[in-house]
Every structure is written in C-alpha cells, then in structure tokens.
Computed example of a mutant assay.
Amino acid sequence: MIENKKVLAIIPARGGSKGVPRKNIRNLAGKPLISWTIEEAKKSKYIDRLILSSEDDEIIKIAKEHGCEVPFVRPNELAQDDTPGIEPLLHALKEVEGCDYVISLQPTSPLRTADEIDGCIEKMLATNSPACVSVTEPTHSPYWMYKVNDKEKMIPLIEQDRFAIRRQDLQAVYALNGAVYVAEVDWLKQSKSFLTEETAAFIMPNNRSYDIDTEEDFLWCEYLLKKSSER
C-alpha cells in the first residue's frame, strides 16, 4: 500500500514460447526463471497482493511453490502468440478487484530489483502521472541508424541538422526494457495501454534491463546472476 492506495502486482506468464521453449520455468542460475520475479516482488514495500496470470498447469504449480497467489486460470484464448499483452492484464483486473494501482512484472526480466519496482511506483506519484514504465538508454542510438532505399543508399532514420560523431553529442533517448509497468487501475481500464503521452519514465541501468527473448539472452542473464552471487 502507498498513500492509502492498494497495489496489485500481476506476473503474466503463458506456457508458449518459441524463442526459448518453456523459458518461464526453465532453470536460471539455480531456480526457475519466474521465481526471480516472484522473490523481488515479495520484497516490495508497496505491493499488497501478488498474483500470477497463466493458462499453464506447470507454471501455476511452480509459481505457487514459490509463494505467488494464483486466483484464476487464464483462458487459453488469452495465451496465444498474437494475444495483445494488455489483454491478460485487463482480464486479471476483472477477476481480482479492489486495488487502486496495478503493476505488470514480466518474468523475463530476472535482473530487476524490488527497489526498482518501488521506484517506478514512486516516480508515478512524484510526477502526478497515471502510469509509469521502466526504460533504459539503448546500446545503439537511433541517431546512428539508417534505412536503405531501393537504390541501396543510406537514409538517416531520424533527420538531423548535423551528424553527431561523438556519442556524448547525441540527444539522450530511451527504450522500453519490459521490467516494470505501473498504472492507476481505472485509468488503465480506459486507456487499455500503459503508454500514452501522460506516462512517466523510470530509468533503469542497462545491466539490469535484460529482457529474455532468445537463448543468448538467457545464457547472458545466467552468467550475470551467477557472477553476482559470487561477490
């Protein structure tokens, strides 16, 4: 709870995954991937209730074993490859009522910390915004990116008055990292998106912004987690 408002955290985790099969429950540095998110969410100062949204029996079983509540089973039609990411969250908000703020915590962000979850909530309130999402500065700036036309000529992705050679001369830009999404429940039900011109940004460092989508992502996160545990 924060400022007398109740906070619901949802971990959306479907069984299907093409890039890394069964990744949500695959062993990552000694425990299932999803458990890293559950453990950090349970450390939050503000989360009142932590639930899982999944259609998969094995994911549900493992989430329960690690202390995550599973008040419903997600309908299969909301667990398809083409299901918009907001739909399982809106479904969960119909199933679980009585909260003022909602947080979406994807299990594919195992390096995100409880402090960053809480920081995102605090940023939303501090900026008087209806939503806040975590972002990070991308490794490659879009100001150095190009399209190639049908004559195989390079066209700048972003038009500029002058080309910046040094990285420090580039305008700062940020990309979604998928780690934390926070919003007022009523606002989210109306907007059906965390991302509008009213959304605030919570900046996270690159080394905690990895979103596991490929086998290489998985192996790199495992390396970082093992290295961190050795300190």
Rank of each mutant, 00 (worst) to 15 (best):
M1Y: 13
E3N: 13
N4M: 09
K5V: 00
L8N: 03
I10W: 05
P12F: 08
A13V: 02
G16A: 08
S17I: 03
R22K: 14
R22N: 14
N24P: 00
R26E: 15
P32V: 06
I34W: 13
A41S: 10
A41P: 03
A41F: 12
A41G: 05
K42T: 03
K42P: 00
K42Q: 07
K45T: 12
K45R: 15
Y46I: 10
S53C: 02
E55Q: 13
E58I: 09
E58S: 08
I59Y: 06
A63L: 03
H66E: 11
P71I: 08
F72K: 00
R74L: 14
P84I: 12
P84W: 09
G85H: 12
I86K: 11
L89F: 06
A92I: 02
E95M: 12
G98Q: 08
G98P: 02
C99F: 15
I103K: 06
I103W: 06
L105C: 03
T113A: 04
D118A: 09
C120M: 05
I121S: 04
M124K: 07
L125S: 06
V133F: 09
V133C: 12
S134D: 11
V135E: 13
T136A: 10
P138W: 13
T139I: 07
H140T: 01
W144T: 04
Y146V: 04
Y146A: 01
Y146W: 05
D150R: 13
E152V: 11
Q160G: 00
F163L: 02
R166C: 00
D169G: 05
L170S: 06
Q171Y: 04
A175F: 14
L176V: 05
N177M: 03
Y181F: 10
A183H: 09
V185W: 04
V185A: 01
D186S: 10
L188T: 06
L188C: 04
Q190D: 06
Q190A: 04
S193H: 09
T196G: 15
E197T: 12
E197W: 10
E197K: 15
E197L: 14
A201P: 00
P205R: 14
P205A: 11
N207H: 15
D211A: 09
D211K: 11
I212R: 08
I212E: 11
I212N: 03
I212P: 01
E215I: 15
E216D: 13
D217T: 03
D217F: 09
L219W: 11
E222L: 14
Y223C: 01
L224G: 00
S228A: 15
S228P: 00
R231Q: 10
